[in-house]
């Protein structure tokens, strides 16, 4: 049965099987491929989106539980924290292959929006759910600190 979802401020109607995770609705039905698949079991963070502003793993989130929620993806995340994170990511050339980085940016944006001066421990806590096999961890930490110094 078709469901109506609010994604990046736009209303989208999708017709996927009940229980289909939001990740695959975004990627396969709506062709919004910025949100990535890495593990499918909430272990890597590649699929992170914001649900009502909270970073959430879309690979284990049934899309049909989300009617009425504000869904934000890498393609649509805006605002001061997102702009600042994008800016420091580009300035510092944080990504390598980039595949994990949609999730990293969604997680870092949520962290910065909550906490404008995160400590190393805060960064570890907020970001340890996001695996990067290229190991951009040190760059991410440096960039979040740069962003915080400007926030």
């Amino acid at each position: 049965m078709a469901k109506t979802l609010k994604i990046n401020g736009k209303t989208e109607t999708v017709d996927a099987a009940p229980g289909t995770p939001l990740l695959w609705v975004l990627r396969d039905h709506l062709k919004m491929t910025g949100t990535k698949f890495g593990c499918g079991i909430a272990q890597c963070g590649a699929c992170t989106v914001h649900i009502d502003g909270t970073p959430t793993r879309s690979c284990v989130l049934p899309h049909d539980s989300l009617e009425g929620s504000e869904i934000t993806t890498i393609e649509g995340v805006e605002g001061d924290a997102a702009n600042l994170i994008r800016q420091v990511w580009v300035e510092n050339d944080v990504p390598q292959c980039g595949y994990c980085q949609s999730g990293q940016i969604m997680a870092a944006t949520a962290l910065l929006a909550e906490n404008s001066d995160p400590t190393d421990a805060d960064i570890d806590a907020a970001m340890s759910g996001n695996i990067c096999r290229c190991a951009t961890y040190m760059s991410i930490r440096r960039a979040i600190k740069t962003a915080a110094s400007r926030a």
């Binding site: 919004m32 491929t33 990535k36 393609e75 580009v90 944080v94 990504p95």
Partner: peptide
């Protein structure tokens, strides 16, 4: 020299193998 790919990556753009449609 700054990367040519990273500005795209920060917006979820660019096509990986798994993104092909």
């Amino acid at each position: 020299i700054p990367s040519l790919t990273i500005p795209l990556i920060t917006r979820g753009q660019g096509t990986f193998g798994i993104d092909v449609d």
